[in-house]
Design a protein around this nucleic acid. Sequence first.
RNA 1: GCGAUCGUAGCUCAGUUGGUCAGAGCGCCGGUUUGUGGUACCGGAGGUCGCGGGUUCAAGACCCGUCGAUCGCCCCA
Length: 415
Amino acid sequence: MAKANTINPVRGTQDIFGEEQERFAHVVSTFDRVRRLYGFQGVQMPVIEPTAVFARSLGETTDVVSKEMYSFDDRGGDSITLRPEFTAGIARAFISNGWQQHVPLKLAAHGPLFRYERPQKGRYRQFHQIDAEIIGAAEPQADVELLAMADQLLHELGIADGVTLQLNTLGDGDSREAWRAALIDHFEAHRGALSEDSQERLQKNPLRILDSKDPRDRPIANSAPDIDAFLTDEAKAFFDAVCAGLDAAGVAWTRNSRLVRGLDYYRHTAFEFVTDRLGAQGTVLAGGRYDGLIENLGGPSTPAVGWAAGIERLAMLLDGVVAASIDAAIVPMGDAAEARAAALAAELRRAGLAVELGYKGNMKKRMQRANAAGARYAIIIGDDELARGEAALKNLADGEQRDVKLDALAEALSQ
RNA sequence: GCGAUCGUAGCUCAGUUGGUCAGAGCGCCGGUUUGUGGUACCGGAGGUCGCGGGUUCAAGACCCGUCGAUCGCCCCA
């Protein structure tokens, strides 16, 4: 418990340590391995961007821009924003650096993001995501490849059980407009029965009524028309190709015709991997196609599709605790042994072995630390062993102990 | 921005209708074992009960405020 006069962390930030950090690192390293299997290049992006990058990509009037961004004026008077997502910054970089010469471009990124909102389960003001984008590919095969990678990632993390891929299409521009008009007609007809929130949504974002959680809205949302009847031939062919591609790739999915995106630039495929294990924050990985975004930001007309996933949420779902462990802990007793142990530690580490050197406390203390560090072996060196050029090598799992020549330790530990 | 619940030891928590209620487990330190961990036993340190005010003979408990946390709503790129 912190004392009254100590400094508190910034609200919504977290100090990730120990077991939690092990899980976190496991998510990132698994992502880094899997994205290489699919030929996605890593990319490092700035954490800060001009506010206009997000204001123009997300829309000036959305809640996100108006009240959920971490923005401030720098000393030169420019408005700067801590990135709330990866996609807009990547689109900006694509334009800034003329990356159209590299399309189709498959990019992967991960790191901290910031949103100024109330913290709750799995949601922080500074949080972390992994992110994947395919830029410059208008073909449905890009959507399939992107989703196959997400699916493989979740399987390799061992959290695919209880997670389902929900898939929908928002159609092309014409499809979307026709559907939107039909939805407004439908909801206007039931206006009085809608929740207060949804009556608001009818003005600002009618598509959002479809995934409302309010029980009063559900019957009306469920009886609303699907987009299917409004899809153009091209849009229908695109969605069919995505579905067929997923089946061919062995990626399980279910249609969720109520799944929508909040922002206008989304087109065609929209998807979420959803779990029932995280309370209200059940979306584990989400994304879609945003063919209009780069053009909105002043770049060339460029199709793109991508997803992002919260590292904290993925880490929460990991079952097995990844226990930290090392190969050996050296336990020297006496000045001469300590001097020799320092050299031995360096030698073993150069040989690629993870080694801890105990230099604090009495022998019992050092043995306790060796055990706590998860060491497979303790290397005990006292004056007697030192005189013989040996160490007592104790297997901490079964308690077996034998003498080994110092210069044979690396080999003995490697077995 | 809104609602609910909760702030007691390093951690997880118990504390009855206000009256020895400053407690437990784990962890930490030490000992049983001056060179042998993980199991066992014994001992010890550690808290102005989030903060400020109020009610009362008496407040960890009740009231008000404040800060923080958690869960949900809104939003979700």
